[in-house]
């Protein structure tokens, strides 16, 4: 699936992936998709929890070569 913007949080620990993703998605329009890349294992649960709490839609979660990928669609 395609995305409109991307943020690479590789090497960052809690709470940076969530905080940086929030700041990034705030610059986007509702309905647009943000791709988030992380290496922090904690972010596997943190990113979905954040998205769910603030009303963004988790479209995809994947892991590849020690990196985690998330596609989050911005809510209203």
């Amino acid at each position: 699936m395609s995305h409109n913007d991307e943020i690479d949080c590789s090497g960052m620990s809690c709470p940076l992936p969530v905080v940086k993703s929030k700041m990034k998605i705030d610059t986007m329009n509702p309905g647009e998709v943000l791709k988030i890349i992380t290496t922090d294992p904690g972010s596997c649960k943190d990113i979905p929890a954040w998205a769910n709490r603030v009303g963004h839609e988790m479209i995809e979660e994947a892991e590849e070569n020690g990196k985690y990928y998330f596609l989050v669609k911005r809510g209203e």
């Binding site: 709470p15 905080v19 929030k22 700041m23 709490r53």
Partner: peptide, 11 residues
């Protein structure tokens, strides 16, 4: 600061 920034990111 960790809990506060995370909570703020969660609106």
């Amino acid at each position: 600061f960790i809990l506060a920034s995370t909570a703020a990111a969660m609106d």
